[in-house]
């Protein structure tokens, strides 16, 4: 079983990439479990657009106990038979979302998920790794291959560098970085900058996804671009990315070499004047 997690700065396109990868894995005949690790519970809605969203945290809150969590009822079946679970979490501004993610991971383990029922587990994790809770997929072992969605924007690279530090911190759990996924923003020399950035981190840049308005239009219909416009250019790019990810072997995954803050600033400054 392969376990994959997509990390990256908020709004960078993790959910789009993760949803598309889940669908493409399923299309390739794999049994896929897609876990949305975000208290906003917005990861699965493009995979199961017509179903009411049930979340692990919400259900636990209703039950008042975690002794009899109806885990089967929480699995939603989406496009291409992808099984989806949303962690859920507190309302914005209250509670502790990080602990909620950890709790979800613990609950899934407790109830035997993913077990042997799946070939691929795809985790779509909230934004930056701001605390240990959001690193739960790495720490608890739900994700072995980490992919970081990044663009040529400074803060996106900054977040990617931080996530690499989390990968290093949790390397003893057997996790490794599969590469950077470039979700381009049409910035000048964006691909070159990202390639050098990936090289500096000791990893590789996977097939870049150019900016395409069909992705935005598909999102407005609560769909992935693969289901909304399967013949579009954007869909082809996602398929190309999928090919690379599918071909990825453990040897392709590395422990990255994240940059210290000062070195990162220097790197960015150098790239600006290049």
């Amino acid at each position: 079983m392969r376990s994959i997690a997509f990390y990256g700065k908020g709004g960078i396109g993790k959910t789009s990439v993760a949803s598309c990868m889940s669908i493409l894995f399923a299309s390739a005949g794999r049994r896929v479990l897609h876990i949305g690790c975000d208290p906003k519970h917005d990861s699965c809605y493009k995979l199961v657009p017509d179903q009411p969203m049930r979340t692990v945290m919400g259900t636990l809150m209703q039950l008042g106990s975690d002794e009899h969590l109806p885990i089967k009822d929480l699995i939603m079946v989406g496009f291409k038979g992808v099984h989806c679970i949303e962690a859920g979490g507190p309302e914005p501004g209250v509670g502790c979302a990080g602990r909620g993610i950890t709790k979800t991971m613990e609950m899934l383990s407790l109830y035997g998920l993913p077990g042997k029922a799946y070939d691929v587990v795809v985790c779509d994790v909230l934004g930056d790794v701001v605390c240990g809770g959001f690193a739960a997929p790495m720490r608890i072992g739900f994700a072995k291959e980490i992919y970081i969605v990044v663009s040529g924007e400074v803060m996106a690279m900054y977040a990617a560098n931080n996530i690499c530090r989390a990968v290093v911190s949790n390397r003893r759990n057997g996790i490794a970085l599969g590469g950077l996924v470039a979700n381009l923003r049409n910035l000048p020399h964006e691909i070159e900058i990202l390639e050098r950035f990936a090289s500096t981190l000791g990893t590789r840049l996977l097939h870049p996804i150019p900016m395409d308005e069909s992705v935005q239009i598909a999102e407005r219909s609560s769909l992935t671009v693969l289901t909304f416009a399967p013949l579009s250019d954007a869909a082809r790019h996602y398929e190309a990315l999928f090919d690379e990810i599918e071909r990825t072997t453990p040897e392709d995954c590395v422990i990255p070499t994240p940059l210290e803050y000062d070195v990162f600033r220097k790197f960015i400054a150098e790239e600006s004047f290049r």
Binding site: M61, G89, E91, R99
Partner: peptide
């Protein structure tokens, strides 16, 4: 408080 209180609402 329970763990769920801590996670969800305080």
């Amino acid at each position: 408080a329970t763990e769920m209180d801590a996670i969800m609402t305080g």
